[in-house]
Deep mutational scan, measured.
Amino acid sequence: WIARINAAVRAYGLNYSTFINGLKKAGIELDRKILADMAVRDPQAFEQVVNKVKEALQV
C-alpha cells in the first residue's frame, strides 16, 4: 500500500511521509489500504484528497 500511495502522490509533487503528515494536519482519517485503492480506482477523488493535504501543508 505504501508503494502505491508513494507513486501516486509523487505525481502531485509530494512524497509519502509528507502526504501522511498532511493527512493528519488536514484531519483526514482514511487508512492506507483505502488510500491505495482510491489512487488506482478513483483518481479524481484521490486528487481531491491530495489537494486538501496540500492546503493543510500550505504547499
Rank of each mutant, 00 (worst) to 15 (best):
W1G: 15
W1S: 15
W1E: 15
I2F: 10
I2V: 07
I2E: 10
I2A: 02
A3S: 11
A3F: 02
A3Q: 14
A3C: 15
R4E: 15
R4N: 08
I5K: 00
I5R: 00
I5L: 14
I5W: 01
N6W: 03
N6G: 09
N6I: 02
A7H: 11
A7G: 04
A8T: 03
A8F: 02
A8P: 00
A8K: 03
A8W: 03
V9E: 00
V9L: 12
V9T: 04
V9A: 09
R10Y: 05
R10F: 14
R10T: 13
A11I: 13
A11W: 04
A11Y: 06
Y12S: 02
Y12W: 08
Y12D: 02
Y12E: 02
G13A: 05
G13P: 00
G13D: 08
L14A: 01
L14V: 03
N15D: 07
N15F: 05
N15T: 11
N15G: 06
Y16P: 04
Y16H: 03
Y16C: 05
Y16E: 01
T18F: 03
T18D: 05
T18G: 10
F19D: 00
F19I: 01
F19M: 03
I20N: 06
I20Q: 05
N21M: 10
N21D: 07
N21F: 10
G22R: 02
G22L: 03
G22K: 01
G22H: 03
G22S: 03
L23F: 04
L23H: 01
K24D: 06
K24H: 09
K24V: 11
K24Y: 11
K24C: 15
K24R: 06
K25Y: 07
K25E: 13
K25C: 11
K25W: 08
K25V: 12
A26L: 06
A26R: 04
A26N: 05
A26S: 06
G27H: 13
G27K: 10
I28C: 10
I28E: 05
I28W: 04
I28N: 03
E29D: 14
E29A: 14
L30E: 13
L30H: 05
L30D: 06
L30K: 08
D31Q: 14
D31G: 08
R32T: 14
R32H: 13
K33I: 10
K33A: 05
K33E: 11
K33T: 04
I34H: 09
I34A: 10
L35D: 01
L35C: 05
L35T: 03
L35V: 05
A36C: 08
A36S: 10
A36G: 04
M38H: 03
M38N: 03
M38Q: 08
M38Y: 07
A39L: 08
A39M: 09
A39C: 07
A39S: 13
V40R: 07
V40P: 02
V40E: 15
R41P: 02
R41M: 14
D42V: 10
D42R: 10
D42I: 08
D42N: 12
P43Y: 05
P43K: 10
Q44N: 10
Q44C: 14
Q44Y: 07
Q44W: 13
A45V: 06
A45R: 10
A45N: 11
F46A: 00
F46R: 00
F46T: 00
F46Q: 00
F46Y: 01
F46W: 08
Q48D: 07
Q48Y: 06
Q48P: 02
Q48M: 06
Q48T: 05
V49F: 05
V49T: 14
V49H: 04
V50E: 01
V50K: 01
V50F: 02
N51P: 00
N51L: 11
N51D: 10
K52Q: 08
K52P: 01
V53F: 01
V53C: 13
V53H: 00
V53Q: 00
K54M: 12
K54E: 04
K54H: 06
K54I: 10
K54L: 10
E55P: 03
A56T: 09
A56S: 07
L57V: 07
L57P: 02
L57E: 05
L57N: 07
Q58R: 13
Q58L: 11
Q58H: 07
Q58T: 09
V59L: 13
V59M: 05
